[in-house]
Write a protein that binds this DNA or RNA. Structure first.
Lengths: 281, 281
DNA sequence: GAATTGACTTCCGGAATACGGAATTTAGCA
DNA sequence: TGCTAAATTCCGTATTCCGGAAGTCAATTC
C-alpha cells in the first residue's frame, strides 16, 4: 500500500512537471530520441555528436547510442564514420506519407493552381499544428516574386493571413496558448497585444476571411480564407500573397470575395455542408 | 593490433547481421517505436491500436505506450480519444527538412522544369536508399500523362531507369544486396536474372545512361542519367519517362544524349569536376 | 614524429525504466 | 440491458538503459 502511494505520487509529480496537457511522460528513452531529432533545423541541418548532446541536454554516450539506433533505421544519416549527422531519407519517406494521406492537400491542388494563375501571385495552403502554421503547399506565379516561405516549416499563426484564418476558429484555450507563447513583433504592423489579437480574430470570424496587413514581412499583404471539412471544423486555410505595391488595400475586398468563394468550393469537396458542427463529446 | 582486428570483425558481423550497413541492435525501445512508425503505409494510412500491435509484433500495452508518447510529440495523431492513429504533422516537418537541405534537390529544380517543358514528358529525380529508389521530385508535363509514381515512395532499383542509373554506380556489395532481396517480375521485360542485371549495369556504366524498356510498368519507357557531386560519387539520377508509343526506341539515343548533357550540367553545379573519386579511407 | 588535444566510441555495474499479463473501462452491438 | 471486442490502466518484475569513465582515433602542435 505504502509503496503504491509512493508510485502514484511520483507519477503525479512527473505529470505536472511537463505542464503540456494531454501528453505522456512515459517512455523517457523515446522522448530523448525525439529531442535528438528536434535538434536539427533548416539553419543547422548538420550536427556533430557533441552539438546534439549539448542541445538535447543528454550525456554523450546516451546521445551516441540513440544516434546509432536512428542511423541503423535510416532516420539519420552520416557520411563517413566520424562525420556530421543529418536527417535521413526514411524520415522523408514517412513525412511524404503525411501529405499524401491528407485529403485537403490532394483536393486543394487544382484550386491552388487556378488561384495562382488568375491572381498572378503566390498561393499558400496551411494547417495548424497547435501553435504554429505549417505550410503544406505553395505555388509561385511565374510572374510573381518567389516567396520566402518554405514548405513544411512552421510560421507564426498570429501575424500571417493563413495563420489568423486558422487561429480564429480554434478553441479559446488554444488561442490562450498561442498568446502565452508570446506575440513577437516582426514588423511595425504586427499585432503584439493579446486583446487586439482577440478583436482581430473576432472580426475574422465575422467576415470569413483574414488579412495580413504587412504584419509578418514588411511590404507583403496576404488574404486568406478558412477551409472546413465534413465535421464543419476549420482544418486548413488558403491565401494569396504578394508585394504591397501589387496588392493595394483597394484590391483586398475583391480578393477576399474570391478567396472565400474558392475556400467554399474546396470545403464542399471535403464534405462541408454548412450544417452545425459535429460534436465530439 | 590483434585487438583492433577483433573489434573490426565484430563491427562487420553486426553490419552483416542487420544487413543494412552499420546498424546497431541497441536501444530496443527506440527500435520498437520505429517499427510502429513503419506500420503506416500509403495503402493503410490509418491504423487502430490493435492493427499496429499486430503488425509491429508488440503487446497491446507496449504499443499503446509508444503511441501515447509519439502522440505527445505530434509524430502521430489521433482524431478523437479512441480513433485510428495516423502519422502526424511533426513528421512532415522533419521530412521536409531532409529535402530542403538536399543540395541536389535545390539545384535540380530548374533543370527538371526545363526538361519537362522541352520533352513534354514526366521528369523524375531520385536518390538511392540502400535498396530502393526514392523519388524526391517529379514534374508532369501539362501535355503528358500524369505519372503514377508518388514522391517519397520507394520504387524498385533494378527495373526503373532512375534506379538502374543509380545502382550501376553502387558498390558490388550493395548490388549483391539488391539481388539477394529478389528481382521481382513486374512486366514481361523485367530483368529477373542477377547475371543479366549485372551485364545491364555494366552497359550502363559504359554508356553513361540507363533505359527502362517497359521493365517496371507496361508500355512506359524511361531514360535516366546519373548525377555526381564533388566527391565524384553518383548521388542521384534524373529521368524522362512516357508512354512507349510516344517514346519509341528510335527516340532513345537523342533523349539519352540530352539527359547526359543535363545531368552533366547539374553535376557541375554540385562541384563535380570529372577528376578521380575522392577516397574515403 | 612524439605528444597533446579534442572528439568519438565502447564498457560495465547499478538501478531506474519499460515490459507485458491481467484487470478495468469504454463503446458498439444484439 | 447484457455481451463482445477493443482500448486503456495497473503494477510487480527484471530487462534494459543509463551515464561516468576508460579507451580509441585523428588532427594539430611543438
Amino acid at each position: 500500500m505504502a509503496r503504491t502511494n509512493v508510485k502514484a505520487r511520483q507519477r503525479e509529480n512527473e505529470g505536472s512537471r511537463s505542464s503540456r496537457g494531454s501528453g505522456a511522460d512515459v517512455l523517457k528513452s523515446l522522448r530523448k530520441a525525439i529531442r535528438v531529432l528536434e535538434c536539427f533545423s533548416l539553419q543547422e541541418p548538420r550536427l556533430s555528436l557533441s552539438d546534439i548532446a549539448r542541445r538535447a541536454q543528454l550525456p554523450l554516450s546516451t546521445a551516441h547510442r540513440i544516434l546509432a539506433t536512428l542511423r541503423g533505421a535510416g532516420i539519420v544519416e552520416q557520411e563517413g564514420d566520424r562525420e556530421l549527422y543529418r536527417l535521413g531519407l526514411k524520415l522523408f519517406e514517412l513525412g511524404s506519407m503525411v501529405l499524401a494521406n491528407m485529403e485537403v492537400h490532394r483536393e486543394a491542388l487544382p484550386f491552388i493552381e487556378e488561384l495562382s494563375r488568375e491572381s498572378g501571385e503566390t498561393v499558400h495552403l496551411g494547417v495548424f499544428d497547435g501553435s504554429q502554421v505549417v505550410s503544406i503547399e505553395k505555388m509561385d506565379s511565374p510572374h510573381g516574386l518567389a516567396s520566402q516561405v518554405t514548405i513544411g516549416k512552421g510560421a507564426p499563426a498570429y501575424c500571417t493571413a493563413v495563420g489568423k484564418a486558422l487561429l480564429a476558429f480554434q478553441s479559446e484555450s488554444t488561442i490562450d496558448h498561442v498568446c502565452r507563447l508570446g506575440l513577437t513583433r516582426h514588423t511595425p504592423q504586427t499585432i503584439t497585444d493579446p486583446g487586439k489579437l482577440r478583436k482581430e480574430l473576432e472580426r475574422i470570424r465575422a467576415l470569413g476571411y483574414a488579412v495580413d496587413e504587412r504584419e509578418h514581412q514588411p511590404d507583403v499583404r496576404c488574404v486568406a480564407a478558412p477551409i472546413r471539412d465534413h465535421t464543419s471544423n476549420v482544418i486548413a486555410s488558403m491565401s494569396v500573397s504578394g508585394p504591397a505595391t501589387r496588392i493595394p488595400k483597394e484590391r483586398i475586398p475583391l480578393l477576399a470575395v474570391r478567396m472565400k468563394e474558392v475556400a467554399g468550393k474546396l470545403s464542399a469537396r471535403l464534405g462541408y455542408t454548412g450544417r452545425h458542427p459535429v460534436n465530439s463529446p
